[in-house]
Amino acid sequence: MSRLTDRLRGGVVIPAHPLALTEDGAVDLVAQRALTRYYAEAGAHGVAVGVHTTQFALHADQGLLAEVWRLAAAAGRGALLVAGVCGDVADAVREAGTAAALGYDAALLCPWGMEEATDEALLERARAVGEILPTIGFYLQESVGGRRLGRAFWRDLFDIETVVAVKSAPFDRYRSNDVVQALLEHDRWADVAVLTGNDDAIVHDLVTPVRRTVGGRTREVRTAGGLLGQWAVGTAAAVGLVAEACAARDAGAVPTPLLAAAADLVEINAAVFDVDHGFAGCVAGVNEVLRQQGLLRSARCLSAAERLSPGQRERIQDVRDRHPGWLDEEFVAEHRDRWLA
């Protein structure tokens, strides 16, 4: 477990893996494999599969979910493999067992599919899944299916020794602070990695150490990379960004160009995640970037409710034109055909 924690705390780039579909809604296995190849060659440290960007609706077909997990494990051999697990205790345990058998390293505890996602139900599920795989807590923003979780919940979650990390993604600075402050208060503060999932504040999270004095000694928590839907595009650029941000934080001086990059990424994320329409097109937006780049044949999602919003396609094209470096335009164009072969 400590070896896994060390890997997670090393400044990781973990894209939230999309689901590739054809225009008629079938899974495109060639494109699915090509995406994993892209992330591996871009230098990503791992992939997260079965998470929000992979589409939670995929969990309704356990056979298909297992096939998608298997494809990522085969194409991304050697990478850190994170399986998004959903549902109530029995469902999540079953999924964790499947993922473990396929060689996955950890389970991300997703809130989708629970009959009643109370604090105690979430904690009970974390304990049960932890019997099978090391677990990563997940603070998902409410607009895409999460719920508010207070500091007491996070303290109780950190009590569970199989919890090795937490993905903080409420898209809210106060709530993100709740996670880190609860960890700083906890005896396991040095044993749990914090990963950013705040796609609207990637650089801010990476460069900001959080400190607190406990028992007369100063503790410090640093965000150790991220697990992000944003990094399903522009992955090679993200690898360079994390290295630069962590170096700047460690040096105690954040250069102005890095702050300017933060603003660029917020602009890109606003288009891709469809901020104008309350994140309604966030999953389809990731797919649309990859479709425009030629890696996917369609931006289609499993659910008819998950689709591009009016004007989103054009806004995505605009940020691609203005920020090609952050979206790996040259890198993808050079290698795309080989990944798809």
Rank of each mutant, 00 (worst) to 15 (best):
R313T: 13
H59K: 10
R313K: 14
V164F: 01
T54H: 03
G113V: 03
A66T: 04
P310R: 04
G11K: 04
D88A: 00
C110R: 06
V47C: 10
A60Y: 06
C301D: 09
P111T: 02
P257E: 12
V27D: 06
D264N: 14
R148T: 07
G229S: 08
V144Y: 09
C86V: 13
A248S: 13
L58Q: 01
T22D: 07
R336F: 02
A57D: 04
H335Y: 12
G103L: 09
D250H: 11
N287S: 13
G113E: 02
P257D: 11
L4M: 09
R322Y: 09
A224K: 03
V163K: 09
G252I: 14
E95F: 15
E23F: 07
L123H: 08
Y139N: 12
A261L: 15
T235R: 04
A284H: 02
L35D: 05
L184N: 03
V179N: 00
A57P: 05
A48Y: 06
L4K: 12
H335A: 14
A248Q: 13
A74K: 11
A152T: 03
E161K: 13
P134K: 11
A247L: 09
A79Y: 02
C110F: 03
G240T: 01
A20C: 11
T196N: 11
G103Q: 07
A237C: 10
R222Q: 10
I316Y: 01
V254H: 06
R148K: 14
V179T: 07
R173S: 14
G150N: 12
A305R: 11
R151A: 14
A245N: 12
G252Q: 14
R219P: 08
G84F: 01
L8M: 11
G46R: 02
G229A: 13
D274P: 14
A263N: 14
F273S: 12
R188P: 12
G225S: 09
A42E: 04
R300H: 03
T54S: 10
A260R: 15
S298D: 05
I268V: 11
V51K: 10
S168G: 04
T162S: 15
Q141N: 14
L327C: 08
A299P: 07
L302A: 07
T36R: 04
G25M: 10
A201E: 15
L183N: 07
D105K: 05
L228T: 13
R127T: 02
E116S: 12
S2F: 11
P15T: 12
L296D: 10
A247T: 13
C301I: 06
F158N: 09
L183E: 03
Y39S: 06
L149Y: 01
L265S: 02
E306S: 15
